[in-house]
């Protein structure tokens, strides 16, 4: 694996049993992602983008082939090693935010740091920094039900970014947001990508997201149909 590569996928297959038959979600995928990329897996429902994102996120394992993430082979990781990889290096952003509803904004963002057993003072500083990046310092004590959809997704981004992960995986992050909020969120992520050099990998079919991507990997029926780089003047700002 090249030292600038963060993800390398070779001849990856993922087959799900469907009763007596099988469903091939991913078929012969070959990809590599470099550090600092802002890339999207694009395709219609059932194209395999979420499955690929799950494998990269060590939430699932390949049926065959190899998926290397940060020099670790996902298929060979134990559950504990996979949890360690997620805890230290990966951040997740979900379509429906998935904040812990009973905890306030600070506690939601703090949770990944608790798992890393970071001291209270440093934890507080890191959480406040993350909230500042996302413009949420006035919402520290608010709970998710008191926030708008856009604010919830900003909290989710803060939670994903607070530990400064190498890779952020975002599954349809704007699906529940209106256009204005979507653009605001995406601009924030672009800024984080540029300032912190964090790699972002999206699974999406939202045109708004696609407009911000620097690299577009099109999936169709579990295969890479097209992989294209976007020149800087083509991306939305």
């Amino acid at each position: 694996m090249d030292k600038n590569e963060i993800i390398q996928i070779k001849e990856l297959k993922k087959i799900f049993p469907m009763g007596k038959s099988e469903f091939t979600a991913l078929n012969d995928i070959n990809l590599s992602l470099g550090k600092g990329e802002f890339t999207g897996l694009i395709g219609p429902s059932g194209s395999g983008k979420t499955t690929l994102l799950n494998i990269v996120g060590s939430l699932d394992t390949p049926t065959s082939g190899e998926a290397w993430v940060l020099d670790q082979s996902i298929g060979k990781l134990t559950a504990k090693e996979a949890a360690q990889l997620r805890k230290k290096n990966l951040g997740f952003i979900f379509q429906s935010y998935n904040l812990l509803a009973v905890h306030n904004v600070f506690e939601n963002v703090e949770f990944p740091l608790l798992l890393l057993k970071i001291g209270a003072a440093e934890r507080r500083k890191m959480v406040m920094d993350a909230l500042e990046w996302l413009g949420l310092t006035d919402k520290v004590r608010s709970k998710p039900p008191q926030l708008s959809g856009g604010e919830c997704q900003r909290v989710a981004i803060a939670r994903a970014m607070v530990k400064r992960p190498s890779l952020v995986l975002a599954d349809e992050p704007t699906a529940n947001l209106d256009a204005a909020n979507s653009h605001h969120i995406l601009q924030t992520m672009v800024k984080l990508n540029e300032e912190l050099k964090t790699t972002f990998l999206f699974a999406t079919h939202d045109e708004k997201v696609i407009g911000y991507l620097k690299r577009k990997i099109y999936l169709f029926d579990g295969k890479v149909a097209k992989d294209e780089w976007v020149t800087s003047n083509q991306t939305a700002k």
Partner: peptide, 15 residues
């Protein structure tokens, strides 16, 4: 189970 999914995704171990 949903909450567990988030916590596992954040890197909490199953045990």
């Amino acid at each position: 189970y949903g909450e567990f999914g988030v916590r596992l995704a954040m890197g909490e171990e199953k045990n």
